[in-house]
């Protein structure tokens, strides 16, 4: 059996490009608000909201709705499980790339 026949088992929830981007950004900071994630991911409000709901349901992020200067603000932070998950996922993607140097992670 070659290495390519035994690829790592990717978590499809994390593998979706929008969710992978959100988790990677949150892992590189401690927490960010909805507007920050919207600007850095380029996702529409609806898409970002939908991805965040799925990530929250999976226990990968925590969402806190609060008021800052009397204005509503949604704060999102990554959980320990989310941080572990995204770190493991990037390692798996790098393993895949190492198995086949022609693998294009740009399309991940």
């Amino acid at each position: 059996m070659t290495a390519l026949e035994d690829p790592p088992d990717l978590d499809r929830l994390i593998h979706e490009p929008g969710r992978l981007t959100i988790l990677t950004i949150l892992a590189s900071i401690r927490e960010g608000d909805f507007v920050f994630l919207q600007r850095t991911t380029g996702l529409s409000k609806g898409n970002l909201s939908s991805h965040l709901s799925k990530l929250e349901a999976a226990g990968l992020v925590e969402i806190e709705k609060r008021f800052l200067s009397k204005k509503p603000n949604t704060n999102i932070s990554i959980t320990t499980a989310g941080r572990r998950g995204v770190t493991r996922h990037w390692k798996q993607l790098e393993q895949l790339r190492d198995m086949d140097p022609n693998t294009d992670l740009e399309g991940a």
């Binding site: 900071i29 960010g32 600007r39």
Partner: peptide, 11 residues
């Protein structure tokens, strides 16, 4: 804060 959001760095 309103146009680009707020991010807080980790430890």
């Amino acid at each position: 804060r309103t146009r680009f959001g707020v991010a807080r760095r980790g430890r």
